[in-house]
């Protein structure tokens, strides 16, 4: 197995997860607390990557990151190279692609916090930041862990967006899922099997960690 691809995949998943939590938690707090008419629009936009075919998302991101758009030109001006076909570009695309997995569990977690607790915190003088820091976050740790694990595993397994934005550059954009594709194309089924088993194991372990934290709701035993 290509250890370089494994390291790149893990690094991509970790960086994407950190970025998504940094964006997703405040965004989720805004979604559950705002009265803005823009809320349905923003919620729809954050959920859209869940429904779009990865190639469609990847295509639009490729166009957006290229020299044909002002955004793409700005990045080229800032970094000296296009965002597409680079590790930074992969992070950008992965963050967009996995955004629903960061936002939705946290929104659900925040919604599940008893409104009476929010009322009391407000009555006792807590502003938005203190409410988030001292009430919502500690009472939503399970949802935040879920979001983190989903972002991590989803990024590890993504293929379409990575291929569209990053191509297949060894050491720069070739992740494990791209490597499996290459190995199958070259009829190296044994190698493909080994790589696939690594992805399967990572995803399975992440889910076991997630479900181990779920409380038992009820019991048939005394």
């Amino acid at each position: 197995m290509d250890l370089q691809a494994l390291w790149l995949t893990l690094r991509l998943a970790a960086v994407t997860t950190v970025i998504l939590l940094a964006i997703g938690i405040p965004l989720a707090a805004w979604i559950v607390s705002t009265r803005s008419p823009l809320r349905p629009l923003i919620e729809s936009l954050t959920t859209l990557p869940l429904l779009l075919p990865p190639t469609v998302l990847g295509f639009y991101l490729l166009v957006l990151l290229g020299p044909r758009t002002a955004f793409g030109r700005l990045w080229i001006h800032l970094l000296g190279h296009p965002l597409a076909f680079s590790f930074s570009g992969l992070v950008f695309g992965s963050a967009i692609y996995s955004l629903p997995f960061a936002v939705q569990p946290v929104v659900s977690g925040f919604h599940a916090v008893d409104a009476a607790l929010i009322d009391q915190a407000r009555l006792l003088g807590a502003g938005r930041m203190r409410l988030l820091r001292e009430i919502l976050l500690p009472l939503s740790t399970r949802s935040i862990l879920t979001a983190a694990l989903l972002c991590f595993t989803h990024t590890i397994g993504e293929f379409g967006v990575v291929l569209m934005i990053g191509g297949d550059i060894p050491g720069a954009t070739r992740t494990l899922s791209i490597e499996i594709f290459d190995q199958v194309q070259d009829f190296h089924y044994t190698a493909a099997n080994h790589t696939a088993l690594v992805l399967l194991a990572v995803s399975f372990i992440a889910l076991v960690v997630l479900y181990r934290r779920n409380p038992r709701s009820w019991s048939l035993h005394a």
Partner: peptide
């Protein structure tokens, strides 16, 4: 005026203590 700046305390039937 925000609830926390009114100088009003409010206790309901549900104690609503912060569980953590």
């Amino acid at each position: 005026v925000a609830p926390g700046r009114r100088g009003i305390g409010f206790v309901t039937q549900q104690a609503a203590l912060f569980p953590h």
